[in-house]
Nucleic acid binder design. Structure first.
Lengths: 210, 210
DNA sequence: GTCTATATACGGATAGAC
DNA sequence: GTCTATCCGTATATAGAC
């Protein structure tokens, strides 16, 4: 056996601080979190934050990029899958995001605020160039469908609809839950329903008379 | 004529500071704005902020409540209008909000962040009690439609859909505009299209086979 | 690596001159 | 009412002991 201690399951101090930072930054945003909050949440001393991460901002950047990665993870594979139809992609995409958002409901607000605070930083970090490729499989498939249906509406409407219907309820959940008196479990159950519903609705929207 | 000076069109110092505060708070949020930013934006000195508003937080509260009022202004009248049908209400509501959001696109993010930072403060300030009344005209109308259509889906889905489709694109606009290379004018034109489209889509959703 | 103590900077607020 | 100068708490960051 190696010399690694059998308390190996405990993460390193560095990792614990990062987790604490993720928790606090995600909840309160950059400006409102104090390094002291992170230290307290981690169980370690304030000085260790700088020892491991040099500065609050560097630590924040790490968390931000990780969140971005979580948010975009595997989406390119879905968008570029030659073996699925457009509507299958929509189903997979919506399902993927709802599962992810139930685990991580604060993510969209965090990311939108980050983009708002410093658009360039995020948008370049996004690897966004790749995403806008005109030769993504989904874009080609979309063009075929649009041509077949002789759609008069701008394609970004459909994209916005899909994203809006999927993501917004999570951003509004504090207000929605307060107004509706739904528990978190009931709310999440509704979100899971939307995995089936949103693709159906998107189809209905595409077929709607305008 | 009165003794008022003919430079009357210039607002008072107090009002100018409030406008500056509105601009900065709305753009950067509470924690990230410094009173010095507001002073600079207003053209006046830092000390005057405290002279007129006592503290950063009191000034923020004023801005926040004004924004909330803008956001909810006249919505109760629409919701409670006995002379319009349910779908007319949806049309009016969506149109009202899109017009308002084109003028004030940063509002939803500001409000959601405010709710997030301090749920109780906002939710009580909202006069939220009134909004949840079961005897609003729109609620009654909704129940009739739901009964007639024997809808299997939870009514909050429909509410979430309407709000999501209307509001989210504005919150995501920095990212959307970057990805699509749309100008602000083009983006706003799309939003205006949605005044007609969203009600149609809501109907389509209501009639969709599930 | 982890702590305590401290340097240094920044931001909100006020005193006091004009 | 408006300004300059300054106070003082708080937050980030670092020095240095263990």
């Amino acid at each position: 056996m190696s010399k690694k201690p059998d308390i190996e399951k405990n993460e390193s101090t560095e990792e614990k601080i990062k987790e604490a930072a993720r928790a606090v930054f995600t909840r309160k945003g950059y400006a409102a979190t104090r390094t002291r909050d992170i230290a307290e949440e981690s169980g370690y001393n304030l000085a260790l934050i700088n020892y491991y991460f040099r500065s609050k901002e560097k630590l924040y950047d790490i968390i931000m990029l990780e969140h971005l990665q979580t948010f975009l993870h595997s989406i390119m594979d879905i968008l570029n899958d030659a073996d699925t139809t457009l509507f299958q992609k929509i189903e997979v995409l919506v399902g993927h995001y709802i599962d992810m958002l139930i685990k991580n409901p604060a993510l969209p607000l965090f990311i939108i605020n980050a983009v708002n605070a410093d658009p360039d930083k995020l948008i370049t970090g996004i690897g966004a160039d790749k995403i806008h490729q005109e030769n993504l499989v989904i874009v080609k498939q979309w063009k075929e469908v649009a041509a077949a249906k002789k759609l008069a509406i701008h394609p970004v409407h459909i994209m916005m609809n899909m994203v809006s219907l999927t993501i917004f309820p999570f951003m509004g959940s504090p207000l929605i839950r307060n107004r509706t008196k739904l528990s978190i479990e009931e709310f999440n159950a509704l979100m899971l329903e939307r995995k089936k519903l949103i693709p159906v609705w998107i189809k209905a929207i595409l077929n709607a008379e305008v």
